[in-house]
Nucleic acid binder design. Sequence first.
DNA 1: TCACGTCAAGCAGAT
DNA 2: ATCTGCTTGACGTGA
Length: 298
Amino acid sequence: MRIGYPCINWTIGCKGDRTFRLNSYSEERLIETVQNNLDCLFKMLQFNVANEILFFRITSDLVPFASHPVCSLNWQEYFKTKFAEIGQFIRAHRIRISMHPSQFIIINAKDAKVFENSLKELQYHTEVLDLLGLDSSAKIQVHVGGVYGDKTAAMERFVQRYPLLPAAVRQHLVIENDDKSYDLADCLNISGATGIPVLFDVFHHQIKNNGEATREALILAGKTWHAADGRPMVDYSSQQAHAINGKHAETIDPDDFSKFMTLSRPLDFDIMLEIKDKETSALKAVELLHSDERFIRA
DNA sequence: TCACGTCAAGCAGAT
DNA sequence: ATCTGCTTGACGTGA
């Protein structure tokens, strides 16, 4: 079991998701930004290893405009060595990596252009993982996509499209249950038809479900992960008090997290904490994990 | 230095 | 119709 947090570290004083406006694109600007982002990514990973945080989500903004036509730089070649260096560190410390492309990735899009753009974006994410030398246990998590007023048809469209994706993309791709449209049962259904693993989001499941208990849900989603996919990944958050339903917590709720850890024993998975204060909560979670010998730490 | 309008991309749900 | 949230506010112009 590993603990992780997404994209940003507020402690170490650098940001690995710097970007710029499309209007101000230039090759120099892109090189400068990517250089900064990669340097900072490396620093965040080093911080994490020093603090036993061995799961990390790499920002989609690592290479701004990578999938946009404006991008003329062969950034893959330009930064090959830097990627390789970071990748070696990741593998040496057995850090688990995920990525979570933005809401614009719609695999089941009705509009062919939207699908095409989504594919380009997925290929960019795949290239990042490949340049880091990571195998199919590194995952790119997406939501199923749009509903367009007919969820059955939309799910069928996803199932039709999935085999058309390049194998290099597919080996990293997983779907995540969301809190509005596609719940766990929908994702399991799609997984049954395609073989795609289901990343279980605990918090989304609390908001939208079909009565499955959390533990049962973890088991069901876990079964969709095969040996080459690595340990199942799980997204965890809790409700921010006094906020509208579905808002992620500002900081970890130790009681809620402890309950979750206890009810999930002895299942093994890697937990991504989708919590605003990032590494602060991850540090607390690691501490909690170590405080109780019943929990799996390896 | 700071305020603040705007930022590649899509969709759903609330107002 | 317009605004907000989504994994995350931050870029960049104008004063």
